[in-house]
Design a protein around this nucleic acid. Structure first.
Lengths: 141, 141
DNA sequence: GCTTTTTTTGAAAAAATTTTTCAATTATTA
DNA sequence: TAATAATTGAAAAATTTTTTCAAAAAAAGC
């Protein structure tokens, strides 16, 4: 099932602006802000409005096609979401982002937290920050 | 070492607005936005400015006394940070927040991700969302 | 393919959030 | 206590996000 079908099934329409946002994110090497998506999207779709980018991101995120990346400083970066539950690893030098699966490894921890706090844990947000292989070779900033 | 000493050692001054922000967060049952901190802080400190709250939060966060909580929807909530590396568990019903230690449990996962991606992992953000014990008893919303 | 219905869009305006500026005030240091 | 350097509040500016609304476009029905 491709993204258009996923969006369709969720009741959303396939439109040029949404295609553009997906295309921009597919080409992106790092999470992009709505502004950045808008600027890049305009190359494909001259009249694309910024408000429409916000609306497209909201829909695509709700459907699970796009993921919002929360960083310490800024939390307005978006990237494509792989289907399934993934986590994110961001390079603090170049912004490059990699997804990884890691839910199983958290199960023990979550069970322990549930026992200790009485909470029923339903979801989690795990993001790692580091330096990617190419950036490790470069002169420290 | 109390928070005033920690801030002092980091070169920051102990001022009424900063005391107010700390007092508000100490009393808070859930992460608060800068606006909320400002509104509550004014009860103690009539002339407190919103810009000053932003500035105080930035300093206190840099020093590690305050933690920014990133949630899916909003990522402008702040709470007091316990010294050391803690994680956060938020109740999605009432907003109540609990901290827990969990770094060790992530070590295996992190080592595995480093092997798989070539990144050197330096930091991580882990937050759990669930329902706290009291809210589990209530009628589902 | 055409028409109808409903969603989505772009532009502008509005609202909300965050940052900057700057003179006055306050905390620290000597 | 005086000197100094950081911090403050208020207002303005900048930025980000949301709303409004008529026009355009997508999906569904015929």
């Amino acid at each position: 099932m491709d993204w258009e079908e996923r969006l369709s099934r969720a009741g959303g329409r396939i439109t040029a602006p949404r295609r553009t946002v997906m295309a921009v994110l597919r080409r992106a090497a790092r999470p992009l802000t709505p502004q950045e998506i808008h600027a890049r999207g305009r190359r494909f779709h001259r009249s694309l409005g910024l408000a429409t980018v916000y609306r497209a991101l909201a829909v695509l995120e709700r459907v699970g096609l796009v993921r919002r990346v929360h960083l310490a400083a800024r939390c307005d970066g978006y990237m494509l979401a792989s289907p399934g539950h993934y986590h994110v690893l961001v390079c603090r030098r170049c912004g490059r982002t990699v997804e990884f699966v890691g839910a199983e490894d958290l199960e023990g921890l979550i069970a322990q937290v549930e026992r200790g706090t009485g909470f029923r844990v339903e979801d989690h947000l795990l993001q790692l920050v580091g330096v990617c292989a190419p950036c490790q070779g470069e002169r420290p900033s």
